[in-house]
Simulated assay, not measured.
Amino acid sequence: MTTILVTGGTGTLGRLVTERLRTDGHEVRVLSRHTPPYAVDLREGGPRLDAAVAGVDTVVHCASTPRGGDEQAAANLVSAAREAGVRHLVHISIVGVDRVPFGYYRAKLAVEKLVEESGLGWTVLRATQFHDLLVQVLQTLAKMVLPAGVSDQPVEVAEVADRLAELAAGPPAGRVDDFAGPEVRTFESLARAFLKASGRRCAVLNVPLWGASYRAFRAGGHLAPERAVGRGTFEEYLATRLRR
């Protein structure tokens, strides 16, 4: 079996990817900012990053933050991986990064380009938003004020983890087919499902916004209805979350 480094390996997705790969018998190193022995801030790089990638066959790059720094982190990772002779770099991206001019999406698209031009064998998988993120957003809303006319296609993170682990165990495949959730749903229907499951009561308001990003989201640039390969629905996720 191969030695695989998972960046962001303690995060929502990376933790599950790590579990899948170890179950399949791979030696897995977990890189995160605060978890030894591979505690590395990718935005800074340096000797600790070099040590983390030394002797690694494949890197699965899950580390990401909307707070900025993804491009520098990816540049440092690519440089270290190239120096270490890494065979395969697998990157998780987001459906619509090339169609929605949202700041975080633009950064993810720039990272895709760095991966593609790295000189390494590479694979890029784009997925729609995870159920977990959607619930985090809805939980922060004291009132359900939603962007009018916008839909979403949330996907179960465990299913994306399975697909990433499968890709990491295989040869470089380039840009593979998107991985999207089973249903395209309006934000209002998703919010009402969340309220019902959590027992909350409040008004749901749809408010029109403005700007290029809103227009692109409203046009469905972040959706992939033709790639609705995920199986777990939002209601199933909510039921499981509440049981936990």
Score class of each variant (00 low, 15 high):
residue 43 R to N: 08
residue 30 V to H: 02
residue 190 L to Q: 06
residue 13 L to I: 06
residue 68 G to F: 11
residue 149 G to K: 02
residue 57 D to I: 10
residue 101 P to T: 14
residue 202 C to S: 13
residue 8 G to N: 00
residue 233 T to L: 04
residue 89 L to I: 10
residue 149 G to D: 02
residue 9 G to M: 08
residue 53 V to Q: 02
residue 70 D to W: 12
residue 157 V to T: 09
residue 50 D to Q: 05
residue 123 T to Q: 10
residue 26 H to D: 06
residue 224 A to C: 00
residue 129 Q to S: 03
residue 133 L to A: 10
residue 51 A to D: 14
residue 49 L to D: 12
residue 200 R to T: 07
residue 222 H to C: 04
residue 208 P to R: 08
residue 172 P to S: 04
residue 121 G to Q: 03
residue 174 G to D: 13
residue 244 R to P: 09
residue 133 L to R: 03
residue 213 S to N: 01
residue 57 D to G: 08
residue 110 A to V: 06
residue 110 A to F: 11
residue 63 A to T: 04
residue 176 V to K: 08
residue 54 A to D: 13
residue 185 R to V: 13
residue 9 G to D: 10
residue 196 K to Q: 15
residue 238 L to Q: 05
residue 45 G to F: 06
residue 190 L to T: 10
residue 124 V to W: 05
residue 141 L to E: 10
residue 187 F to H: 13
residue 54 A to R: 09
residue 22 R to V: 06
residue 221 G to W: 05
residue 103 G to T: 14
residue 57 D to C: 07
residue 167 L to M: 09
residue 59 V to Q: 01
residue 203 A to K: 05
residue 179 F to L: 07
residue 46 G to N: 04
residue 117 E to F: 09
residue 143 K to A: 15
residue 12 T to L: 14
residue 113 K to C: 12
residue 38 Y to E: 01
residue 136 Q to V: 07
residue 6 V to H: 15
residue 39 A to Q: 03
residue 32 S to C: 02
residue 33 R to Y: 10
residue 233 T to V: 07
residue 217 F to G: 07
residue 228 A to T: 00
residue 244 R to D: 09
residue 40 V to M: 04
residue 50 D to S: 05
residue 24 D to Q: 12
residue 1 M to P: 09
residue 207 V to L: 15
residue 12 T to M: 13
residue 168 A to E: 02
residue 208 P to I: 04
residue 180 A to F: 02
residue 18 T to Y: 08
residue 239 A to H: 11
residue 124 V to P: 00
residue 171 P to E: 13
residue 47 P to N: 03
residue 194 F to I: 11
residue 19 E to S: 14
residue 239 A to L: 14
residue 183 E to T: 13
residue 118 S to E: 02
residue 150 V to S: 09
residue 133 L to E: 02
residue 26 H to G: 04
residue 78 V to C: 01
residue 85 G to Q: 01
residue 236 E to N: 03
residue 169 A to T: 01
residue 76 N to M: 03
residue 72 Q to I: 12
residue 199 G to K: 06
residue 40 V to P: 01
residue 1 M to A: 15
residue 220 G to F: 04
residue 154 P to H: 12
residue 24 D to R: 15
residue 142 A to G: 13
residue 149 G to F: 07
residue 226 E to M: 13
residue 11 G to S: 04
residue 165 A to T: 00
residue 7 T to H: 06
residue 212 A to N: 09
residue 61 H to W: 07
residue 104 Y to A: 05
residue 177 D to W: 11
residue 195 L to N: 05
residue 219 A to S: 10
residue 223 L to F: 00
residue 203 A to L: 09
residue 61 H to G: 08
residue 111 V to E: 14
residue 214 Y to R: 00
residue 182 P to E: 03
residue 29 R to Y: 02
residue 119 G to E: 11
residue 35 T to W: 03
residue 85 G to E: 07
residue 172 P to E: 11
residue 215 R to N: 10
residue 220 G to M: 07
residue 44 E to R: 11
residue 20 R to W: 12
residue 84 A to Q: 05
residue 9 G to H: 10
residue 102 F to T: 06
residue 81 A to T: 14
residue 147 P to W: 01
residue 26 H to S: 08
residue 42 L to D: 08
residue 47 P to A: 05
residue 176 V to R: 08
residue 186 T to M: 01
residue 158 A to S: 12
residue 209 L to S: 11
